[in-house]
Design a protein around this nucleic acid. Structure first.
Length: 113
DNA sequence: CTGCTGACTGGTA
DNA sequence: GTACCAGCCAGCA
């Protein structure tokens, strides 16, 4: 399945997204180990046809829906079914619904950002 | 190895 | 608000 470890990490992260929440390609990429690989994540999502991976919960930055093969409408409906309000091509309260992967707890964090 | 593509992102006009 | 450009990364021919 996962021909590459990166793809495995991405799929694992997406799989961990709880219902009712959404994550951006950048967030998934960051959780996978490359915060700039948003494009690569999109490519992986495109190949994701497994129901085990809620690729519809992965959206673009700013709360934009992004893409979904040729069935963007289905993506909107799926999000709506999970309680996510979608207006046009945007998610309402995107910041509040945005889910972030659990970072690894390490004892040192003097300067998080 | 080189080159192109793309479910991205941010900035500029 | 929309349109276009450049940068970035992973996968594949």
């Amino acid at each position: 399945m996962s021909s590459t470890p990166f793809r495995a990490r991405v799929l694992a992260t997406v799989r961990r997204i709880p219902p009712g929440r959404v994550a951006t390609y950048g967030d998934v990429a960051a959780a996978a180990g490359s915060p700039r690989a948003s494009r690569a994540v999109g490519n992986i999502m495109r190949d994701c046809r497994s129901a085990a991976v809620p690729c519809h919960r992965v959206i673009a930055a700013g709360g934009q829906l992004g893409g979904y093969g040729g069935n963007l409408q289905m993506k909107r409906e799926l999000l709506r079914a999970e309680g996510i309000i979608v207006a046009g091509n945007r998610v309402r309260e995107f910041t509040a619904r945005r889910w972030k992967a659990p970072g690894r707890p390490r004892q040192s964090n003097v300067n998080p950002r």
